[in-house]
Amino acid sequence: MLRTALPASSGSPEPKVPQASRVTRVTVERPARFGAPVRVRTSDGLLAVRLVARDGAHAEVALLASGAMLLGGDHVVVIVRVDPGCALTLTDVGGTVAYDGDGEGCRWDADIHLGPGAGLAWAGLPFVVAAGADVRRTTTARLGAGAHLSLRETVVLGRSGERGGRIVVRTDVVDDVGPILVEELSVAGEHPVPGVLGGHSVLDTVTDVRGCPDDGVVDPTGPAPERTPAPDPGDAVTLRLERGGTLTRWLGPATHLSPLEPPALAAPAPTNPSEVA
């Protein structure tokens, strides 16, 4: 279910919603019979989908641009569904550049549903906000009981030599109990704000969260919740969220200096999905 996002802060007017949005869809379903690989259903939008590998519980899928993007008026929509007990690794084939839209905004919306015990690791590549771009980028995730979401999101203000355009980065992660992480970052390369990003142009974030188990007992087949213990890598900071899970963040001048590692699912998904359901 798509949750309604708050309007962008009034300092950053909502980008015009483009008329035509083509939806990229990835759905991982349980095998038709025991021993068969998971079923992967896809449809291409502005991002095209390529199945890389799959087995009885896990699929790996790559997303790649199907044309020049993101231009003014573009609206990328990515819908990801992972069935109970299944796991999906999503990779980006290339980074994304949001170009100068000449006054017209663009949008990038990801909508994620993970069933009970499902897993998603999304190793996003840098999302570059060129000078003149005006982007609203949202990630909305609903986690079933015991589901595991690990997500890297790297936002870069400006290409080489640019200070970069405007972007609102909205993240909503909820489970059956309620919100786990709600964040809306509004930044503009031309107007750096001390305390928000300061003078940094790279906002690199790895979010690692789990849905609350229905019975309050941690799934014994899952990895321990504190699998990435302190110390923080390099000068990154790990924030432990109130409801569990972490947000590890690094601010800096260039993506290649970031100490963050791409996310991975810590352990194979449960091999007996019928128990989860």
Binding site: R3, T4, E183, E184, L185, S186, V196, L239
Partner: peptide, 12 residues
């Protein structure tokens, strides 16, 4: 749900 979510990563 209406409550603003405007974060401030450097401050955090």
């Amino acid at each position: 749900e209406d409550i603003p979510a405007s974060g401030s990563p450097q401050t955090e």
